[in-house]
Nucleic acid binder design. Sequence first.
DNA 1: GCCGGTATGCTTGTGCCCACAACAAAGCCA
DNA 2: TGGCTTTGTTGTGGGCACAAGCATACCGGC
Lengths: 410, 410
Amino acid sequence: MSDDDVDDRVGRGSRNEETRQRNLALMLSSVHSRGSLSRADLTRLSGLNRSTVGFLVGELVELGLVLETEPAAERRVGRPSPVVVPSPDVVAIAINPDVTGLTAGVVGLGGAVRLREVILTPEIMTPEDAVLLTRDFVLRVADELPDTTRVAGIGVAVPGLVDERTNAIDVAPHLGWQDEALASMIEEELALPTWLSNDSTLGVIAEAHYGAGVGCDNVMYLNGSTSGLGGGVISEGRLMRGAHGFGIELGHILLDRNGALCPCGRTGCLETVVNVRRIWSAAGRGVIGLDELDALYASAPGAEVEAELDIQADALAEGIASLVCVFGSERVILGGHVGALLEARGERIRAGVARQAYGPLGRDLTIVRNGLRERVVHIGAAELAFSTLLNDPAHAPLFDIAGLRAGVRR
Amino acid sequence: MSDDDVDDRVGRGSRNEETRQRNLALMLSSVHSRGSLSRADLTRLSGLNRSTVGFLVGELVELGLVLETEPAAERRVGRPSPVVVPSPDVVAIAINPDVTGLTAGVVGLGGAVRLREVILTPEIMTPEDAVLLTRDFVLRVADELPDTTRVAGIGVAVPGLVDERTNAIDVAPHLGWQDEALASMIEEELALPTWLSNDSTLGVIAEAHYGAGVGCDNVMYLNGSTSGLGGGVISEGRLMRGAHGFGIELGHILLDRNGALCPCGRTGCLETVVNVRRIWSAAGRGVIGLDELDALYASAPGAEVEAELDIQADALAEGIASLVCVFGSERVILGGHVGALLEARGERIRAGVARQAYGPLGRDLTIVRNGLRERVVHIGAAELAFSTLLNDPAHAPLFDIAGLRAGVRR
DNA sequence: GCCGGTATGCTTGTGCCCACAACAAAGCCA
DNA sequence: TGGCTTTGTTGTGGGCACAAGCATACCGGC
């Protein structure tokens, strides 16, 4: 066997150091996703020894990642256990450029959205615009947040295809972007590590952690936006990424090979039928926001809209049945306009899926609307920025907000 | 937080013992999948220390799982490194009941098929028949194999839906089986641990390890059999199982919502069009085996068959494009009659997929015929039986073949 | 045929990490 | 106030991988 044949595909060996890292990561992740846990809870959850947990929590406190607070006043026998909570000083920046503007947010460890701003743009922004808007937001935020704040990084939710290997945008059709190395552009401007991912992929991460997918290991998330129908899948607790780091494109699953032409160049994609623009035109109006859409459906929207809702509900049911058949999901979460559609045509969709799903695969399927609503993208994007920290709490870099103010090229 | 809320979903902590187990598993898996490796290779592959690897290999030798042989006669400077090979004494039994009969095999650690028997049944067998045929095969084999042989267990490839959580068959339509606890039936008869899985799922495991998927982390396998179109997916090196342990059903992805009725009760599933029975009837003949099918395609099969091939090639291309779009696979492996179809209509299928695949997801896609041909099911089934051993070499039970002869209820 | 160079195996000592046990602390309850 | 229960703390021990140094085996040049 030549040396060239030896690659590391087989996987690397484990060391003692990794054990520590994994356990430390487990502690921080647990606190992160559950918000607050007593040390005794952590002991039970991890199966580790009390003494080990004590030491690990101590290390996290020393790293400034968690705080130990007074035991909760519970009526319980035995010595009360101090409660471990995420440090409020650790945050991530979440950015989401889209057609109408850029929404930006600050999310704390633990998933609480601290700040949220919507910056409207008169016309569709360029990547350079996005970088500048991000810089301005971060500078504004840096002045507002206390000096003790430390930033894990920036997570950007992109409405388009992202190559996660190169951390660049392959194509974002509705923004008209192509081959944009947005992450390095932001990093250069702000000296903060930046990660990109598809907005729907981030959606499923957020919903699985904090939303309608909590406690479920096999989640499919479908998100209907102006841009189209996106989605993400978590299978056995693990995010599906696909080979190229592009994530996956659920909206372009085939519904009808003889169907309408899709902007993607193929015919009969699911999103040619399940499409909010068709609702808009049935309603005889222009752009309708999500809240308005809910209001419209809740009122009497007229025969044309009702008919269109039926059409889309049926198509969505067939699409979901087809997808469940290949993913074996147990919970389907619908966000954006398909979430609104579920609200309006829940019975029809659920019955359609039950009728169409392949054998036992549809047996225990639940279909729900997403739980985080408009916060979903920010929480997902923040999760992206937190993931390095959560995987290796002792070594992941954190950036002082004071240094940030100084470091930015004004 | 109440105790009830504390489940182990967050994951368990790690101990030193697990580190050892993982490293031992890494050594054995490497030797298993590559056939033979020098100790120096193992050192490079694992990144572990020489002394650690030496100790680990020593432990595997002591467990009787590998052998250390003379260094390969290579013209190389430095001290030659002993070559580690899987022990020929460690085997698994692979069983595959199907409509025409039961094929059984003995597969050695390392993936070599030692023995293979096809036992034809005059009529479709019952689960009880399958158990008896399996018992007879194991007893015959036990007499032939040396006394030093040790068996890891029995893997059964089932043409149907298997619930891997309960290790029982949910439904195997073509065998007419339903809710059969085949694994425990065999275990009771033979006192050997038995695992069941879907035949196509096992196909992708085998092809990814030893066949056309070697060196690729994102593989999709489609297998066309008399029963229909099955498949399996490996994403980022991990088998997709789905929520219910049923695996996934690629043949029932939607092709055309206005299409023909599928036996599964839905309309327009891919396998209503991509279906070998349609070829048979176009050829005006009854059952055509795979070899005959290849021969038929290679000759001039007549206009009707040619037309049918075109139809199926186009439908297959659309199906693959749709599936690639949701899985982001980089290699598609076709087995059974769709493998033969690829041989006959390769250009058409590849062009169709390239045209239909969503954006960059189809960019570096390769479509190949399966490499293991008829051995694929056995290798996959054996892999199922080996997996416990490969995950924890020090603790997985192995069964003496002598004890087996005695223990079986004759 | 000898000797340096190189790659690998083997042995031993060290550090790291977790489990365990014993003890201390903090609350409940009678 | 004292027993009970639960939890934190501390010290000890065992398991594991690593580093360093030495031994071994082969190549190639002289």
